[in-house]
Write a protein that binds this DNA or RNA. Structure first.
Lengths: 254, 254
DNA sequence: ACTGAATATGTATTAAATACATAAAGCTTA
DNA sequence: TAAGCTTTATGTATTTAATACATATTCAGT
């Protein structure tokens, strides 16, 4: 089977098994090289980038579908995943244009409805734990800096903007930022993460004070050796205390 | 045409003109008698209550559809309306059960998909400006106290809970509460609104100080006469300043 | 004019956010 | 092996915001 035949078979399958006219788009955030990244994919046989997404099985909740899609693409099971907005503009894409850009055989590739409503989820993942797995629709996965995105397919630039805005609000509300770091991290790493997401510098003394006052991270005896300079202490996120604090509504961060 | 015929015709029309498997549910909040109310409807020929909702035309954005549905039902054009969550559980209702409860002719009333994903919007309206307009599907509209809701159809109790939670968070973030009051209101009225939504008492001196410090309401010379006691001053919401403050991100309220 | 029930308001206290500077560590290289 | 460079770690004073709290005023009704 060549690509075109595969495509046709794939969409036939999707149209049979999935809800029509409804999709999921995932904004997967990672943090690396002091920059906030989004995991994007390049469509087969094209130079077009877009968000990983997928469809919802007829017998599957939307949340479960989002989890499934993420797992398929990142290999990660446990992650911070949250619905943030549903995109229901009348015109979110031009079917013919998409077909052309993606080198799809013709408009009849599938029973595409004229429009698709898409439910947006964003995920916060530990960059290092992700092994993006391309499927036959995808040539390549790449982490791109959120500040330097090319024009993406569909309304994906807009979706990422909304996700980012939501992330910023949430960050000032609860310390979701942990999810972007490895299990053990240093205080400066955490600070740079916050600085990156909030897009402003923070004072190291005040930051450290505040984070530690939240009582949901613990400092380990261990230090990170091998850096060129003074060895920083490692910290670990205390999930138990975090959950407890969340339930009691004590968490807010500005 | 009797009701059953009307129903069949109606759903035939919906199925032809609207997106299948996707709906909108509106949680319309109002404030009256020192209580937060939700506008609910009683379905024709039944004792079952539920949220007003509707479907999205094939050529209509979801936001516009929500506005349209609200306007149809409340007569209000300008209102605070916001998408808050999309409900995509696999099982949100039992088609047979609903048909039975609503005395619909049989399961073939329409080409109902086995499931419907619903996009939730909530609206904040000035109770007094609303004239609920029943359509042929509806026997009655009624404002019910959010704290004393009967079991509703579908997952509507759940939807209201999520809306309420969102409203509380938003209230502590920006003073959306104005939208629930008439153009001119007194400080104690505003305070009781906040107390009701946040479900806790507030100190009148601190409350007044804080609200006035936000700089988005103005005290009028006018006082409300005729009450049995000391006449309270009237205040008015300054939309211009509010917008400006929002843009500059100055607004937060806890 | 007296009563009752709500309105209006100021100050002191506490807690949180902010501003700010220096010493210590660890690798590099001279 | 000492000096240098860069990063980490940390405390205190100041400002701002949140909280706690009590009394005089108004006006309809009697």
């Amino acid at each position: 089977m060549d690509y075109k035949e595969q495509l046709i078979a794939f969409f036939k399958d999707v149209d049979a098994r999935c809800i029509l006219g409804l999709s999921i788009d995932c904004v997967i955030f990672g943090f690396y090289d002091n920059q906030l990244k989004v995991l994007l994919l390049r469509w087969k046989q094209s130079d077009e980038w877009g968000l990983p997404g997928g469809f919802i099985y007829k017998k599957e909740s939307v949340d479960v579908a989002a989890q499934r899609i993420l797992e398929e693409r990142t290999g990660i099971k446990e992650l911070f995943l949250q619905q943030f907005h549903t995109f229901g503009e009348e015109v979110r894409y031009n079917r013919a244009e998409i077909s052309r850009k993606l080198n799809w055989p013709d408009n009849s590739t599938r029973l595409w409805p004229d429009r698709t409503v898409s439910i947006g989820y964003f995920a916060l993942v530990d960059f290092m734990k992700v092994t993006p797995t391309a499927d036959f629709l995808t040539d390549e996965y790449r982490w791109l800096d959120v500040e330097k995105l090319p024009p993406l397919l569909f309304d994906h630039n807009h979706i990422i903007e909304v996700a980012l805005k939501t992330l910023r609000v949430q960050l000032s509300w609860q310390p979701v930022g942990y999810n972007l770091l490895p299990e053990k991290f240093t205080m400066p790493e955490l600070q740079r993460l916050y600085e990156t997401i909030l897009n402003r510098p923070l004072d190291p003394r005040n930051f450290s004070k505040k984070m530690r006052a939240l009582g949901i991270i613990e400092r380990l005896e261990e230090q990170r050796k091998g850096g060129a300079f003074k060895s920083p202490y490692l910290f670990r996120f205390d999930k138990e205390k975090y959950k407890k604090a969340l339930q009691e509504g004590h968490l807010s961060f500005s």
